[in-house]
Amino acid sequence: MDLEALRSFLAVAKHRSISKAAAALYVTQPTMSQRLRRLEESLGFALFRRGWTGVVLTPQGAYFLPYAAQLMRDLSNASAVLGSKDAARPRSFAEVAGHPHKVVFGVDNWLPERAVRAVVSSALTGYGADEFRVTSRPATTVIDLLELNQLDAGLFYSTEPAHPFPTEVIGTEDMALVHPPGTALEETSAPALKELLSRHRFVLFDNPVLTHHARITTTLIETYEISRFHVVDDYRTMRALIRLGECITVVPAGVVLDDAGRHGSNLSFTPLPGLLPEISVIVGVSDAGRDHGVTEAFAGSVAGFLHDDRPGSGDARPCAHRPVRADPGCLPGPGTC
């Protein structure tokens, strides 16, 4: 994406004037207008409209702005660390970026802590602690980095049937309704779910969940005629809103189970088997990962550690996850019963 066009977009949003933004960036007004037009054409939507108070953001422009700002900030931070003009790099730089030979594993940051333990434990069976590192990213980023060969292997939630690298489904999870304390789903049926959903605003998670889990969210919204939303991009905000009785939402069951198999963070939740599509827990291995010695056995190892560490493992407590949909030789996935 054109960085000068992004910088111009942010300047116009700040000054609410193309001429003032052009002056601030020391370019002509026609140049500024051309940059904005080029950016809008590449995005496929208008970013601004003219109002009585000057140039104002369209709804699409307002949605796009924080992503543009974050991108420019990330690039600025990377430049500050890597740039040759500043010799005083952080001492941690050598550890973070100075070991390209390390095997790198990615974990979807929606997966629970036991998933991270399973990846670390599996990595330790084949590598020394100084030979690998684990990074937590949104599922979409894990998938992109695997395709780009910047991760060797990754563990992530997905509703997609195929990916551009070898994968193995090591488990599936039901979606779970997360609702305020004192409320209850009277029965596991579509009418009961629709009635309970109608009494609350629905917490809709913004990107990357909005796009990556679109099959589930679209089915949910259309089937149960949800019309009142509260959009968040942070799990803690979701918890606060639901705990205070204002909202309700649906997430993978593993997200709201703590390591002891109890409801995480005192939230009430109810599994929804059969009412929504299940979500898969997937291990992916990139071409680079195979070159670095990560084999198909890694998926089985992660599944085995998750099975041993699942909520309620070793006792009779019920589990909110569905049986594994994998090859007969594959060990059960996270939280399966």
Rank of each mutant, 00 (worst) to 15 (best):
T135S: 12
S136Y: 09
S136K: 14
R137I: 06
R137S: 10
P138E: 08
T140W: 03
T140N: 10
T141C: 08
T141A: 14
I143D: 01
L145V: 08
L145W: 11
L146C: 07
L146E: 01
L146Y: 00
E147M: 08
E147P: 00
L148I: 06
L148H: 11
Q150K: 15
Q150I: 06
Q150G: 04
L151G: 01
L151I: 13
A153H: 04
A153V: 10
G154V: 07
L155T: 06
L155H: 03
F156V: 05
F156E: 00
Y157L: 14
S158T: 14
S158P: 06
S158A: 15
S158C: 11
E160Q: 14
E160A: 13
P161S: 12
P161L: 07
P161M: 08
A162Q: 15
H163Q: 14
H163T: 06
P164C: 12
P164L: 11
F165S: 01
F165W: 05
F165C: 03
P166E: 15
P166Y: 08
P166L: 10
P166H: 12
P166I: 09
T167G: 02
T167H: 03
E168Q: 12
E168G: 02
V169A: 08
V169D: 03
I170H: 01
I170M: 03
G171Q: 05
G171M: 05
G171E: 04
T172P: 00
E173P: 01
D174L: 09
D174S: 09
D174V: 07
A176S: 14
A176D: 04
A176I: 06
A176C: 14
A176H: 04
L177T: 03
L177V: 12
